[in-house]
Structures are given as structure tokens and as C-alpha cells.
């Protein structure tokens, strides 16, 4: 969904991306885990993808880099076009030869995974893990690569020289996540996909990582797709929000507008179900709840995907609903707004 102005030099545009997930051993029907998603990020902008677990938001992040598991999933349609200042022409990752994919991963688009404890190799020093990425793309000597790695560690507020030879278990959780970000940033990519980078961290350390992401965004004019399930983080860090449910974008628009007057019933319920902190706040009230939970049946065609849990539903909702532009730059997939 092309919201706002496109900058000509640097952008990542996802159009009509559909990824199909096949169940193992042919049990049951396939589902569209990412269903005709349009998303748009400029350089120096953070787009937050918000949704609950099982909504397909992590799958979206993986399929942008074509990292989705090939044995169970398949990109059915759509394109992911990338325009970078250094590149001569627009690249479509979905049309790329699999041989050329490694040259794009890490160099143009990078990804930071959720759990820093499991995504770092425990038996390799962090310095080596960072320089590994450099050697894969550049033909340079070891000392230069080490220098680059140290400078990037320093940028992440880690003492690079002292920690270059450290193993992952010697670092704290927040530090490990910062090493992950250093690894993703070491080739100076144009776009970063951050897949729940702060979920496994404490409140205080999570704030440090968030501030770091904000800092590197400003420094290197990075475009970030920030996948999270925490609305308060999305509100504070992002420029625009895509609310994800059962593989579809339910609502998207500017962060302030979505947070101040949400349109889609799902967004409304989500915002109300979190204990919030206004000044006249009354504790011990009943929280608003969304009945039921996200199931596989919600991914079926021919009805609104939020139908089974919606508080505004009626028989008119039992059809495919398009993403309508409600007001300028605000889109919602609902006929009731």
C-alpha cells in the first residue's frame, strides 16, 4: 500500500505478495499465510508490522528475503522491488535467480531475528561471526575485516576491541542482540527487517536496543520493517503501522492516526485490551477482551478473516473484503467503517 510520498532514490515496495503454506504430509488444505500484502518503506523510515502470534507477520519478514522454508511454502504471486542508491536499476527479489540471492541478502536487505540466544552460534567467537559476513561479500584481508567489525561493534555501544574474541555466552542478552544488529549492519544495507528484536529482552535493555535502532536509522538513512506484537513499542518507534491479522493487512496508515482513531474493529480491540497509561487512568477495571483465538480456520477465503472474533460482524461480512481507502493515507479492510 503506497501510503505517503515515494522517495525516488531509496525504497522497498511489496506488491500483492502471496505466500502459500502447505501442511506437512498433505493433512488438510493449504493456507495463504501471507495474502496479497502491499507494503511500502522509504529510506529513513520505520514501518511497524503489528499482529499476534500465528498471524503470519514473521513469515512476511522471511519471505521478503526469500528465506521461507522451500519444502512447505511457496511464493504464489507478487513482487518485492528494491531501489538502492548504489544500484543501477530496480531489483525484484521474487524474480531473482536463486544463485544471485546471497549477493542481495545482507548487502541490500538484512534481517535481525527475535531470539539472540539461539541465533548466534555458541561455539564461534562473535568477531568471527561478524567477519564471516564481510568475507562472503568482499575480497579483503583479515585485519581490515577485523577493523570493520570492531568499528561496527563500537557503533552498537559495545567495546569492540575487548569483545571481539568473546563467545556469545560471555555476553548479556541485550549485548547479544546488539551483536546481531552489528552483524546485520556490517555490510551497510539499505533495508533492515527487525523480527521482534526486543521480545526476548528486559524492559531496560529493550529500551537500549530500541534507541540503538532509532540511532542507526538516523545515521545511515535506513529503511526498517519492524515486526512486533507490542503496540506501545510500535507506537513509539514507527512512522507508519500495518496491522496484520491472519495473513492480511487489516489496517494501515500513519502511526499517530491509527493510534488516535483506529478504524478496524481488530485494531480497536487490540488497543483497548492493553492496560494503558493515561493520566486519568483507573486501575482494576475490566480489560476489553477479544473472544476466542486465532485459528487455522480464520485463513479461509470467502469471509472477513476477523469474522469469528469481531464485535461488529453481521452477514454482510461473509465475503472477501478489499482494503479500502477510508481517508487520505488510511486504509482498512472492513465494510463497517
Amino acid at each position: 500500500m503506497a501510503y505517503g510520498g515515494k522517495t525516488k532514490t531509496m525504497n522497498l515496495e511489496i506488491k500483492d505478495l502471496t505466500v502459500r503454506l502447505y501442511p506437512k504430509k498433505n493433512a488438510g488444505r493449504h493456507i495463504n499465510v501471507v495474502d496479497s500484502v502491499d507494503l511500502y518503506v522509504n529510506g529513513g523510515e520505520i514501518a511497524a508490522v503489528v499482529g499476534e502470534s500465528g498471524s503470519g507477520k514473521s513469515f512476511l519478514g522471511l519471505s521478503i528475503m526469500r528465506l521461507n522454508p522451500p519444502d512447505v511454502s511457496e511464493v504464489v504471486s507478487g513482487s518485492v522491488k528494491i531501489k538502492c542508491p548504489g544500484e543501477k536499476e530496480e531489483l525484484d527479489i521474487m524474480r531473482l535467480n536463486p544463485k544471485n540471492l546471497p549477493s542481495v541478502r545482507g548487502r541490500l536487505v538484512s534481517i535481525v531475528f527475535q531470539d539472540p540466544n539461539t541465533s548466534l552460534n555458541p561455539v564461534i567467537k562473535i568477531g568471527e561471526q561478524i567477519t564471516e559476513a564481510i568475507f562472503a561479500h568482499k575480497k579483503i584481508g583479515k585485519p581490515e575485516a577485523k577493523e570493520i567489525a570492531i568499528s561496527y561493534l563500537n557503533r552498537m555501544n559495545i567495546d569492540g576491541k575487548a569483545r571481539f574474541n568473546a563467545y556469545p555466552h560471555e555476553l548479556s542478552g541485550g549485548m547479544r542482540q546488539r551483536v546481531m544488529i552489528a552483524m546485520a549492519m556490517v555490510l551497510n544495507p539499505c533495508f533492515l527487517i527487525a523480527d521482534e528484536p526486543t521480545t526476548a529482552l528486559d524492559v531496560t535493555t529493550s529500551l537500549q536496543v530500541l534507541s540503538l535502532i532509532e540511532k542507526i536509522k538516523l545515521e545511515s538513512n535506513l529503511g526498517i520493517i519492524f515486526i512486533t506484537h507490542d503496540l506501545s513499542i510500535a507506537k513509539n518507534i514507527s512512522d507508519k503501522i500495518y496491522v496484520f491479522y491472519a495473513g492480511q493487512v487489516m489496517e494501515c496508515g500513519k502511526t499517530e492516526e491509527i493510534m488516535d482513531n483506529p478504524l478496524h474493529p481488530y485494531t480497536v480491540s487490540l488497543i483497548n485490551s492493553v492496560p494503558s497509561l493515561p493520566a486519568d487512568y483507573m486501575p482494576k477495571q475490566k480489560l476489553f477482551t477479544i473472544p476466542g483465538y486465532l485459528t487455522k480456520d480464520d485463513f479461509t477465503e470467502g469471509k472477513c478473516r476477523f469474522y469469528s472474533r469481531c464485535f461488529k460482524r453481521d452477514n454482510n461480512c461473509l465475503k472477501n473484503i478489499p482494503l479500502n481507502e477510508i481517508s487520505r493515507g488510511m486504509f482498512a479492510r472492513c465494510i463497517k467503517v
Binding site: 524492559v203 534507541s211 503496540l231 506501545s232 513499542i233
Partner: peptide
């Protein structure tokens, strides 16, 4: 370090 929810973007990212 508690992220304000219903407030405007007032988080001081460098303060902490």
C-alpha cells in the same frame, strides 16, 4: 523505561 502508550512520542531515546 516503561514505554508510554497513550502519550505522544515523547520518549527520550538517549536519556537512558
Amino acid at each position: 523505561s516503561m514505554l508510554p502508550y497513550n502519550f505522544k512520542k515523547q520518549l527520550n531515546f538517549t536519556g537512558l
